[in-house]
Amino acid sequence: MRISTFFYTLQQGVRNIFRNKLFSLASIATITSCLFLFGMFYAIVVNLQHIVKTAEEGVSVTVFYNEGTTQERIDEIGEQIAKRTEVSEIKFVSAEEAWDEFKQDYLGEEYADGFTENPLANSMHHEIYLSDVSLQNELVVYIQSIPEVRKINRSEITASTLTGVNSLIAYISVGIIAVLFAVSIFLISNTVTIGISVRKDEIEIMKYIGATDFFVRCPYVIEGILIGAIGAAIPLVIIYFIYNTAITYITGRFSVLSELLQFLPVQTIYQNLVPITFAVGIGIGFLGSFVTVRRHLRV
């Protein structure tokens, strides 16, 4: 391909957008609305997952040991537990550390001075944080089988609730993505059908004059890619402002819940959302124009 032909093709691709303004607007609007819905949904799901994950990270199982269990044996048990896949982190708390923490949290130094011995002498324990809260039961069953274990504290309600929320998010995600996908296909196929009627004569003329399939297709594909890119950029800009406004509003309005509602910054969300949205937008534009033109190339 000559350089001048390459630039001509590129120029025609850009000009095509303005030649068929209505069609270009309809295509951009279709892609924008689909990707806007996708982007909003993505931002919500990612935040929900983040909130659930933050909550999960706080869920722990506490393991107390029988009186007289040696420190070596406790360490050995700790190492065995740490090796399990359900465990993300394990922390040993000695009796002294437990008493210091208790004094600090509940008594204060003046009252604590009355105790000559550590009243929590038998309270050395392991705090275990889970990699996946749904696996809490399995871990507890395993720990219960260790003879030196005296008592296990666990948060069953929190774990099961979080597991439920996680499953719910997964189901809703699949459902909404399926609906969005179906709507997108419908809207895009409609837009492509309009495109076909607009393009039919033009492509026929080019073919009669002796244009190769490549020469005919190129400007339309460039046009499709540009429309896809514009259709991806617009919702990204809109979502950026909506997201920041919404976060500022929610955190201001529901400050009580600020511990629970930990939103991700927009930059974190856009790390994945920008490439995905552009890939989908450009992909739709490319495929749409490719299919539209192909139908008329057999002249």
Binding site: M1, R2, S4, T5, M206, I209, G210, T212, F215
Partner: peptide, 11 residues
């Protein structure tokens, strides 16, 4: 000019 561009004539 379109017919000439198709046969890749120089500008």
């Amino acid at each position: 000019a379109f017919a000439q561009r198709i046969v890749q004539r120089p500008r």
